[in-house]
Design a protein around this nucleic acid. Sequence first.
DNA 1: CGGCGTTTTGAGTGCTTTCAAGACCGGTGG
DNA 2: CCACCGGTCTTGAAAGCACTCAAAACGCCG
Lengths: 246, 246
Amino acid sequence: MNPLDATRLSAELRSEEACATCGSRVAGLCKPMDAASLDEISAEAERLTLPARSVVFREGDSASRVYSLMTGIAKLTRLLPDGKQQVVGFRYPGDVIGYTSRRDYSFDAELLTGATLCRLDRPKLDKLLGRFPQMERRLLDLCVQELTATQEQLVTVGRRPAEARVAAFLISLLEARRRRGKVERTLDMPMTRADIADFLGLTLETVSRSFTAFRKRGWLREPEHQKVELLDVAALSGLADGTDEV
Amino acid sequence: MNPLDATRLSAELRSEEACATCGSRVAGLCKPMDAASLDEISAEAERLTLPARSVVFREGDSASRVYSLMTGIAKLTRLLPDGKQQVVGFRYPGDVIGYTSRRDYSFDAELLTGATLCRLDRPKLDKLLGRFPQMERRLLDLCVQELTATQEQLVTVGRRPAEARVAAFLISLLEARRRRGKVERTLDMPMTRADIADFLGLTLETVSRSFTAFRKRGWLREPEHQKVELLDVAALSGLADGTDEV
DNA sequence: CGGCGTTTTGAGTGCTTTCAAGACCGGTGG
DNA sequence: CCACCGGTCTTGAAAGCACTCAAAACGCCG
């Protein structure tokens, strides 16, 4: 179950089925909480539903709220003075967005798809963290995981050639799905070539060329808009970590 | 005061002067602790001194210990199968190294200078975190700060041209010194051109050329080995975030 | 059936890398 | 004391990979 997605509908949240709404296998902030605690949490949080392309918050906004993504996918971006932007990460159901020790958010959070979120005022969250140590520990774990993922991304952007970066991105999509326990053959990929390029430190043309190359090699298919099917995961991961050409 | 650097010498640690050993203005893990708590912490931790180039731990080692850097500078690196490496961060006095929720460390930690560290077994740390909530909160804050810094680094590596990356690195050195409350005119820079290149996703030659260019423009001096003096911080930060050429 | 945003593809340029050689520096041993 | 040695840094020239600019194709929506 998701950390912050305990809502006023706590009765729902206590049942296995209700959790399925936000992904029953999702490992969110509330994962370690018991039913009684969830009651208290749900009294503080509120649920909201937003359409695709909504801005959840912007870099520089006062960091007064913390969100937990229940459904949908978000991108986190930082903007440079010259207009270029860097995607610092994508977020999936179960992820916490906007927790920081700074006064302001350090990136934009924007939805790629329609999404439902659980929102909590920072003072209320702090109160809850004080009351439920296992929740604070969970938040720390999530933070460490994000840090590791960002370091991994740094390796990708800093040291891999273009096609390897795109391959690594596709593998990371697969990983994200696996964590959520999904099993469909095709992956949802709501990000545009430009989004992917901004994530990988490339241009959208280079990303497009890589996709074309992979398609021609029979490594993937795009059965419909914003879906990918990876046909040769071994080839892709081989390319991603350079375990092919030497 | 430093989080994990409470040692068996707790009496020392309680006094302002003793803290100066590990940098009195350093904001480490034990920062929020009172003297009585430090007693308990120091009973668990041990201090060690290591020479330059020591390996504190390697990627893949069992993550059974957590370290706090008291003095010295460390680099954290990830190795790619093809031998290239990426520096995911440098660590300065007051930083915690090796806390993870995974079973193994996800990067190498290596000392650039001689250093003193405070070492704590993971089970003991967990026990302490359970007993001292303010310590756990502090660890969470440090983790969020690291995450923000790594995201910033992602922007640098992904979206800035070579010279801007080097400029950004120099500014980050300045920042790190400011946080430690130092005031000397020159900065310690124990990292080699290769270290810097691996941090910035460049080659050592490109880093060298950037330094030469900055020197020729009068933006910096290197009065002695492993020292830099920034003569025109404005020019460097302008270049770093692209606020000059447009 | 238009219109608009996204994606694809092409051609040429350029920044960074690669490869190579020499300079510099500190440490070591004769 | 000085010559030698290994590692680091600098500099040059050439090559390559990704970028830029440009235009056409595609697909979705109204």
